[in-house]
Structures are given as structure tokens and as C-alpha cells.
């Protein structure tokens, strides 16, 4: 899938790798953010009225 994405992207190889790296960081940040949000349903810290 990553290879297909790489081949689909325009520009020289260095630019494609840079774009893929940025995408990976953004996706990782989104995944961790979603883990934090979902985690609040498991254990929100136990505060009362906050």
C-alpha cells in the first residue's frame, strides 16, 4: 500500500519520501489523539464534577 502510494505521488524520490514521512507523523498523531479520547471512556481520572 505504501509502495502504491509512493508510485502514485508526483515529484522526485526525495520529495515523495518527505511527503510520506509527514503523512506518517500526522497519522500517528491522529491515532494517539484518538487513543487519548477513547481512553477517557475507560478511565477519565476519577474526578467528580470536573
Amino acid at each position: 500500500m505504501i509502495k502504491a502510494l509512493y508510485q502514485w505521488m508526483p515529484g522526485p524520490p526525495a520529495a515523495r519520501i518527505a511527503m510520506l514521512s509527514i503523512m506518517a507523523v500526522v497519522i500517528l498523531a491522529l491515532v494517539i489523539w484518538s487513543y487519548e479520547v477513547l481512553g477517557d471512556f475507560l478511565d477519565s481520572g476519577g474526578t467528580v464534577g470536573e
Binding site: 481512553g39 478511565d43 481520572g45 476519577g46 474526578t47 467528580v48
Partner: peptide, 14 residues
């Protein structure tokens, strides 16, 4: 004095 803490995550202190 009120103290809150996690029960299952973040070290689960409580």
C-alpha cells in the same frame, strides 16, 4: 481534602 486518581491507566494509582 479531595484527591482523584486513575484506576486502570496511567499507573493506576487508585
Amino acid at each position: 481534602a479531595v484527591v482523584s486518581g486513575h484506576r486502570t491507566t496511567y499507573g493506576a494509582p487508585f
